[in-house]
Simulated scan of single mutants.
Amino acid sequence: MTVTEYATADGLPGAYWSADPADPRSSRAWLTANRWPEDGVRFLEIPGAGAACAVRTQDHHSGFPRMNCTDVAAGTGRDVEQSEADLARARTEGLHQLNVCALGYGQSVFPARGARFDADALLTALEEYAHRQGRLLTFLHLDADDPVLPSLRRRGWSVGVTDHYYRIADVGPDEAAYLAGFSAHRRSRLRRELASLAQAGASAEIHRGAEVTDRIQQEVAHLEACSDEKHGIPGDPARLLRVNEGLRHAFGSRYCVALVRDRHGNAVASSTALLGTRDVLPRMVGLGPGSKEIGAYFHVAYHLMARLARDSAARGVLLSTGTATAKLHRGATASPLLSAVPPAARAHAALLRRTDAAFASREAR
């Protein structure tokens, strides 16, 4: 079966994309612009299966762990205990990988409009393609209703929960309606949080499309570089500016920036965001000096995103994966993300079983 590789989603026919998607992560604009030179992502078209997919190659366990099937199966960064012997076996087994996954934990398999989607044909083509390259084929970060999961299970693949994705499903028509959904204690705490900027003499802004000036883009790149530095990543404002400029160009009026300025007018916190017809997708939070003292993080990460959703007729906010507490305390719910490894990948299957059990144990508490 023919498999055609593309460096970017732009090369694929328009039948794979919705012109106005509910979730920005499933748009061609997101999959094209949210890139960096070392991300390893490519796009494969399998016309005989009526689908295309996003894949990421991985070699020698370098790069981002959440796109490495060994780290994902092991629950690395998700507090799952694994033995060093099991990890060592899996690292050897997965030295060269072909992982079906998209940046941002979004949709990675794209059925074509007007064609019959054949999941079994897709899997057969991908297995042959990975085999020719000497790579271990896996699927990472699938939603529970992903159309390939039934076929994976029928073929004996190991499937398990490897993460949770958090989303505020409904921000309400206004702030009062949003707050009404919380307990009295939590509502009181959120009201104090919402008042923190005014008490500090700070201000909040949301800019959309053409309102996002070059100066604002420079401010955002500086703040995002500060955040990278805090996480042990070399801050590179020029690289971050290139990504944000790509998103601004690709999304147009659906590209947004939220800013918090201190009492002197200096930008101390930011969030870039993209609008879908159903959800707002915050891409990255930037935090500079002075942001912590005024509680700016909670505004750019949550409250301004909720305001943006209300103002744009969206309903929810996509909050990605990671630490649960702050998200749950602001109205998010968790949905499982599943990953799958083939029957021959026994070392990865052992890691995956333990990670799935760890998530099940937490949910049962």
Score class of each variant (00 low, 15 high):
residue 27 S to K: 11
residue 168 I to Y: 04
residue 3 V to N: 06
residue 334 A to R: 09
residue 278 R to E: 08
residue 318 L to D: 14
residue 37 P to Y: 03
residue 163 D to F: 01
residue 317 V to R: 06
residue 198 A to R: 15
residue 204 A to Q: 06
residue 77 G to L: 01
residue 308 L to V: 08
residue 94 G to I: 00
residue 19 A to H: 10
residue 97 Q to G: 07
residue 237 P to T: 07
residue 323 T to V: 14
residue 275 L to T: 01
residue 294 I to E: 03
residue 110 F to R: 10
residue 3 V to K: 13
residue 296 A to C: 12
residue 65 P to C: 07
residue 216 I to Q: 06
residue 119 A to W: 01
residue 95 L to R: 13
residue 86 D to F: 00
residue 338 L to M: 15
residue 78 R to P: 01
residue 48 G to C: 11
residue 78 R to V: 01
residue 207 H to E: 13
residue 250 A to R: 02
residue 277 T to S: 15
residue 224 E to G: 09
residue 123 L to A: 07
residue 171 V to P: 02
residue 290 G to E: 05
residue 244 N to E: 13
residue 77 G to Q: 03
residue 66 R to F: 07
residue 293 E to Y: 02
residue 278 R to M: 07
residue 231 H to D: 13
residue 133 Q to G: 15
residue 234 P to K: 05
residue 247 L to R: 01
residue 118 D to L: 13
residue 197 L to G: 05
residue 357 A to M: 04
residue 360 A to L: 13
residue 241 L to H: 12
residue 364 A to W: 01
residue 150 P to E: 10
residue 166 Y to F: 15
residue 43 F to P: 10
residue 338 L to D: 04
residue 224 E to Q: 15
residue 41 V to F: 15
residue 211 E to S: 15
residue 220 V to D: 05
residue 330 R to D: 01
residue 221 A to I: 00
residue 185 H to D: 13
residue 285 V to Y: 00
residue 48 G to T: 14
residue 210 A to T: 11
residue 37 P to C: 09
